[in-house]
């Protein structure tokens, strides 16, 4: 149906108002909520993902698309049971203790959201205890930690240690990133993955939830 096309197109062009309008119209007409999501909202976002990877779209445009999609989702959400909501997974994300760099981590959050993940962005300067608390509260499949300083990246290890102590390590996959971080460091501290940029982070998360589920 051409309406789905228009909805997807509006997501691609990041037209927040138009996405909400069409979604509402569809809801009023009684279109199946899951279909609105899959054939309209997510279909559009998938195109965005492909185009961004092909360097055909700019970061802020991807962000607008994600926002527009979220606008539509919000309207559909109340109509379906929580368990039916097609979410790829939940990710808790934060910059570690002592570290205030948040541009890269926020970009990762945005790209994950655009890929259909639910992201709990904790912000910066997050102590190991902060990650534990968020894991208990949001029950994510994945925890992502960001560090841009060689001093603070050691807190990634501290967080993983605390996860073990608290008996949570088996319940989540841990991924890390940030300029001084590397694959070998990830292995050294027992993380499940390392992402060198936001797109890699997304692919990594998809791979990890695939394994997890």
């Amino acid at each position: 149906m051409s309406n789905f096309n228009e909805l997807a197109e509006s997501v691609i062009s990041g037209n927040f108002g138009r996405v909400k309008e069409i979604t509402q119209e569809m809801i009023n007409k009684g279109v199946e909520p899951l279909q609105i999501i899959n054939d309209g909202l997510i279909a559009g976002m998938n195109v965005v993902g492909v185009r961004f990877k092909a360097e055909d779209m700019f970061v802020p445009e991807v962000m607008m698309s994600a926002k527009a999609m979220a606008g539509g989702m919000e309207l559909v959400k109340p109509l379906i049971a929580e368990t039916e909501m097609p979410s790829v997974g939940t990710v808790v994300l934060g910059t570690v203790k002592g570290d205030l760099h948040d541009i890269g981590k926020s970009l990762v959050a945005m790209i994950l959201e655009s890929g259909g993940f639910k992201v709990i962005n904790l912000g910066t300067d997050i102590a190991p205890e902060g990650f534990i608390k968020a894991i208990r509260e949001h029950k994510p499949q994945i925890v992502g930690m960001s560090a841009l300083l060689t001093t603070t990246m050691l807190n990634m290890k501290a967080t993983i240690e605390l996860l073990k102590e608290e008996g949570l390590r088996d319940q989540v996959k841990v991924i890390i990133g940030g300029a001084p971080v590397s694959q070998s460091f990830a292995e050294e501290i027992g993380a499940d993955g390392y992402g060198s940029d936001a797109m890699v982070a997304k692919d990594l998360c998809i791979k990890l939830v695939g394994k997890a589920s």
Binding site: E55, F58, V59, P60, G104, L107, I111, D197, A198, M199
Partner: peptide
């Protein structure tokens, strides 16, 4: 600034 296609700082 940022490469707005890739997000690299």
């Amino acid at each position: 600034f940022m490469d707005m296609r890739s997000g690299v700082g």
